[in-house]
């Protein structure tokens, strides 16, 4: 969707504020928020793509005025409600009002290290040959799906060159909505900055995205 999360090329946010590194969490609630998102993700009721969609589909004004972990928590609440795991009246009263549903997995403390260290690959066996090879020119589709996509707006309609093949990967566009993994070939596609941003752009700059085959077409 054309949501507020798709930030590439936007202007007006000011300089990057680089602060000396503190602990990874700025507050105890961020620590708990991060851990809850991981723990509930491990329960297996939704995919990482569904989590991303829940975040990026926040209303733009809300997305841009929420801190990072606020976005995470708001998205987690949306998912918990959508999956019938928590009800709105419980959030309002700040306690559980009825027994919990059966969760796919409740993470025990002793299981945490192994679960977090385990690889959960997104690559799937190839069932068809890749359509494009390194060096091929391709055009990113000019598409504006209302659901989840990982094709940023700044690349849509632009011509780039295949730089790398990553194998066949789960397609977020369908997986985010529980509509199946529909794995497809994944490529790095490199665009000249002048193609993306026009003749005034830095001629020594290029930007690569990772794009599924279904995001691409002949130039």
């Amino acid at each position: 969707m054309n949501g507020a999360a798709d930030l590439g090329g936007m202007m007006g946010f000011g300089p990057v504020v680089v602060k000396p590194d503190g602990p990874p969490f700025q507050a105890e609630w961020e620590r708990r928020a991060h851990a809850m998102v991981i723990a509930l993700g491990a329960a297996g009721h939704w995919s990482i793509d569904a989590s991303r969609y829940a975040r990026e589909s926040l209303p733009p004004a809300e997305y841009l005025t929420s801190t990072y972990y606020e976005i995470w928590i708001k998205a987690l609440v949306k998912l918990l409600i959508a999956h019938g795991l928590v009800d709105a009246d419980e959030l309002a009263s700040r306690r559980s009002l009825r027994p919990g549903a059966k969760l796919g997995r409740v993470l025990r403390p002793d299981e945490v290290p192994a679960v977090l260290a385990a690889r959960r690959p997104y690559e799937r066996p190839a069932e068809a040959a890749a359509r494009y090879a390194v060096g091929d020119r391709v055009r990113a589709r000019n598409m504006h799906p209302t659901g989840h996509t990982r094709l940023p707006r700044y690349a849509r309609g632009k011509i780039g060159v295949i730089e790398r093949l990553h194998g066949v990967h789960v397609l977020p566009d369908s997986n985010a909505h529980g509509a199946g993994e529909h794995p497809g070939w994944l490529y790095s596609v490199r665009f000249a900055a002048t193609e993306l941003w026009g003749d005034d752009a830095d001629p020594t700059l290029s930007v690569s995205i990772d794009a599924w085959e279904s995001y691409l077409q002949a130039p």
Partner: peptide
């Protein structure tokens, strides 16, 4: 709100506080 959410999740048996500590 985050604290309240954790309370709800713990009461429902979805998360163990010690597991959240271990993750963090």
């Amino acid at each position: 709100r985050v604290e309240a959410l954790e309370t709800i999740l713990v009461e429902k048996g979805y998360v163990e506080p010690a597991a959240l500590d271990a993750i963090a």
